[in-house]
Design a protein around this nucleic acid. Structure first.
Length: 124
DNA sequence: TAGCTGACTCCAT
DNA sequence: AATGGAGCCAGCT
């Protein structure tokens, strides 16, 4: 199939991608945090699924910074030295985020969104 | 339809 | 800090 016009995209993925786009440069968020902000509490694993399907060319004209999402323990959720792991780590370090091994200090880099502002921006 | 899977979390060691 | 187990739940086969 060449065209994707009849390919149905899970609407939850769209909300997740949009929420991830709101993570500021130089900061990170957890899977569960994104799920909550996207209005999908308890569905952290779905966030991982959605990120695995992020369009390479971005969504709605903007890139989706999937690499700014890590797990609740402050670690990159790919096996160490795996190709994806290395790419994610490199992207994060490019944003001045300190990554030690697979670990990032959440106390220093975790995104603390202003809920009111975010809800307005995301328009759910 | 019924299992299986996993870019998760939480809690105990 | 690292490791393991149980719970979790939408998607996928």
């Amino acid at each position: 199939m060449k065209k994707n016009e009849h390919v149905k995209i899970n609407p939850n993925y769209l909300r997740i991608w949009q929420t991830v786009q709101a993570i500021p440069y130089g900061q990170v968020a957890c899977y569960g945090q994104i799920a909550d902000l996207a209005g999908l509490p308890g569905k952290a694993r779905l966030v991982g699924k959605a990120l695995g399907k992020v369009p390479d060319d971005g969504w709605q004209g903007a890139k989706v910074p999937w690499y700014r999402v890590i797990n609740s323990q402050g670690k990159i959720s790919f096996p160490v030295e795996n190709e994806n792991f290395n790419q994610q780590k490199a992207f994060l370090q490019d944003e001045q985020i300190v990554v030690i091994g697979s670990r990032i200090k959440l106390t220093d880099f975790q995104w603390q969104p202003d809920i009111a502002e975010l809800l307005f921006k995301l328009d759910f």
